[in-house]
Each structure stands twice: as structure tokens, then as C-alpha cells.
């Protein structure tokens, strides 16, 4: 099936695109607040989409379709950061405070307090 270097490249690009798309999804779920989530959504998502589109472009070979795909790719590069900027700017305008490591310390302290109070909880805190 995978015979030519081109095919290998396509598979690699598509796999990398999927990987970064997955990273974006995981990042949006795991990161603590709007600003940090926007990092994951803007960067990983852009690269994921761009790598997938590059795979598409190579699959089609040379031709108008490829040119169009490249245009799509360029537009992704222009619009994704703009959208992330618009969202975070709106959040900033609304006075939403960015999450800092202080918040984590605060939460860990709170957690220890509850753990002291409630001894038989399982110690799964590290994975946060």
C-alpha cells in the first residue's frame, strides 16, 4: 500500500495533523482558564489543520486544487490567531483575570485542608 516516499509523507503529515488536533482537544479540556485554553485552541489547532491540509495538497499533486488548498492553509494562518485574539481581548475587556500559579497553590492548600478533615480520600491529587 504505502510504497512511494510521497505516500509516506502524506501519512506522516496526516498523522501529525491528527496528533496536534488531539493535543488541542486535550489542552482545551485540561488547561485551567480561558486564556490558557486559547493557547491550545489557537496554536495546536492551527498546526493540526495545516498539516492535514498539507497532506491533502500533496495527495492531489500539482494542479488548481492544490493551489486552493494552499490558499485555505494561508487563511487558516491568518484567521486562527485573529479569532483567538478577538476572544481573549473580549475576555480582557470584560475584566476576566488570568489564572496564575497562585491559584493552583491556593487550590492545593484548600485540598490539603479538606484531606486533613477527611482522611480516607484516595491520594489522586498529583494528576491535576
Amino acid at each position: 500500500m504505502i510504497s512511494t516516499p510521497g505516500d509516506v509523507l502524506i501519512v506522516l503529515l496526516a498523522a501529525a495533523g491528527t496528533f496536534f488536533g488531539g493535543v488541542a482537544a486535550v489542552g482545551v479540556l485540561r488547561l485551567p482558564d480561558l486564556y490558557t485554553r486559547a493557547h491550545a485552541a489557537s496554536k495546536s489547532d492551527t498546526l493540526g489543520a495545516v498539516l492535514s491540509l498539507a497532506a491533502v495538497a500533496i495527495t492531489f499533486g500539482s494542479g488548481v486544487t492544490t493551489v486552493k488548498t494552499v490558499f485555505l492553509l494561508v487563511f487558516m494562518f491568518v484567521t486562527n490567531p485573529t479569532a483567538a485574539h478577538a476572544i481573549t481581548r473580549a475576555a480582557h475587556d470584560q475584566g476576566i483575570e488570568p489564572w496564575t500559579t497562585d491559584d493552583r497553590r491556593q487550590r492545593e492548600q484548600d485540598r490539603e485542608r479538606t484531606r486533613d478533615a477527611d482522611r480516607d480520600r484516595s491520594p489522586e491529587v498529583g494528576a491535576e
Binding site: Y35, H39, P81, A84, H85
Partner: peptide, 9 residues
């Protein structure tokens, strides 16, 4: 916005 860990707000 596109580069390492920075995002224009």
C-alpha cells in the same frame, strides 16, 4: 499568537 506559548490579548 502563533508562536511559543504567547497570545496577543
Amino acid at each position: 499568537t502563533l508562536t511559543p506559548g504567547t497570545l496577543t490579548v
